[in-house]
Simulated scan of single mutants.
Amino acid sequence: MIPAEDRAEAGRPPARVRHRRVFYVPGYDPRSPRTYFLLFSRELRKFAALHGITARMRAGKEDPATSWHVTADWPGGPVKTTVDCLSWHEIAVRDFAVPKWRVALLSLRVLWDAVWTGTVWRMLRLNWKFGIFSLYPWGMALLYALAALGLVAACLTLAGAVGLPRLAGLAPAALGLYGLLRLTEILDRRFFVWYLINDWIFTWRHRTRRDPEADARFESFARRVADAAEDPSLDEVLVIGHSSGSFVSISIVARARELMREVEGRPRLALMTVGGNTPIAVAGRQPSPARAAMQALVTDGGMLWVDYFAPQDVLNFPWLEPVAAFRLDLGGKPPRNPSVRSARFREIFSEERYAEMAYRFYELHFQFLRANDRHGEYEFYRFLAGPEPLESVTREPG
């Protein structure tokens, strides 16, 4: 845990935020930004009801798909926030269009890379629950492969049993394999095997710089963040990365810090990662852009980075202290970031909701983006529309 007095040196946060710019970085998700617009609009109303205020959200005129305006009427005056959804869903859509047989072959290379670079062993040592669940799609893929081999063997055996050449069983085997492939796609609506394998492949490409399309997209995002962070009319610029968007947002903010100029009266820049799975991108022995970006932000005293986790969520990594976990070489500089904090799901959600979500892993992972049932430090929509800057909310030990 980084002490609050050591986390930031320049540009103290304002006592009260009136104008904020938020850049929301989703995870690896083929759904369009409209999904998040509808989610944020619905949950903002619940947040407002909990606090007894009025809050509204509307799409921007220039870019209604990804730019949204939030106004919250607090007793001390309104807070206005512009939310930019830094969507990269086209990357996921592109990946999901790749034939499954090619995905399967590429996944073997990615798995070998994760083993050879020590990523798998490091994740298991750091947190066995997260490590095991990260390997879940590979376990399911092995079951699918065994089912395919069993199907082929059964067809060949049946052909021989009825007096036909055994190779005659290849025709029905091919039809059966096609049907099995279609079945796995249907099952993915519940088990997310292909989804998680594609997520692993994207992370591998990002880590090894094999995705120029994604790199160009993230570079443009960094320039937008840097431009906003030079706007003196803003009180706070906040970048929020969820799930795989955590390590993407780390890369974006690190690049934005390189692009930023020193402007008098510029707003406070802060990064908040929630439900992050950064070890998949950083834990290996080999250097990577995400690792270099993380190393830069850890020692950056000119901005704030807060990392929220939920130990109940197997899709995120709890209590991740990057310097110790990844053996970062800080070159003698003191660590400034991140402040690692629990979202305390047990305290902020009702017993009924908590029990309902306990074994629905994907839904539990998205509770980070939902309104609370009870007041607490972690309130996603207070970070978006509240009058306090992030640093004031997270000043006390987490």
Rank of each mutant, 00 (worst) to 15 (best):
A10N: 12
P14G: 10
R18W: 14
R20E: 03
R20W: 01
R21N: 06
V22R: 02
Y24W: 14
P26D: 07
G27Q: 06
Y28N: 13
D29N: 14
P30A: 14
P30S: 12
P30M: 10
R34F: 11
E43Y: 06
K46F: 08
L50E: 03
L50W: 01
L50C: 06
I53R: 03
G60K: 06
H69F: 13
V70R: 01
T71L: 13
D73V: 09
K80E: 15
W88E: 07
W88H: 08
H89P: 06
A92R: 05
D95Q: 13
P99H: 08
P99E: 12
S107M: 12
L108Y: 09
W121G: 05
F130T: 06
F133D: 03
Y136F: 13
A141N: 11
L142A: 15
L142W: 12
L146A: 09
A147H: 09
A147T: 15
L149G: 14
V152P: 08
A153K: 12
C155F: 11
L156E: 15
A159P: 05
P165G: 03
L167H: 07
A171T: 11
A171L: 15
L177A: 05
L180R: 11
R182G: 05
E185V: 15
I186V: 15
L187E: 11
R189C: 07
R189F: 15
Y195V: 07
I201H: 12
I201E: 12
T203I: 15
H206R: 10
D211F: 14
F218G: 04
E219G: 10
E219S: 14
R224E: 10
A229I: 01
E230M: 04
E236A: 04
V237Q: 00
V237G: 06
H242R: 04
S243P: 11
I250R: 03
S251I: 02
S251W: 11
S251A: 10
I252N: 02
V253K: 02
R257I: 10
L259D: 08
M260F: 05
V263S: 06
R266N: 09
R268D: 09
R268Y: 02
L271R: 00
T278Q: 12
V282K: 00
A283S: 02
A290V: 09
A292R: 13
Q295Y: 07
V298Y: 05
F309P: 07
Q312G: 13
P318K: 04
A324Y: 14
D329L: 08
G332W: 13
P335W: 10
P338V: 04
R341C: 15
R344I: 03
F345H: 11
E347T: 09
F349P: 01
E351P: 15
A355M: 08
F361T: 10
H365C: 07
G376K: 02
Y378G: 00
E379K: 05
P387S: 00
E388P: 02
P389K: 00
P389M: 05
P389Q: 00
S392N: 09
P397A: 14
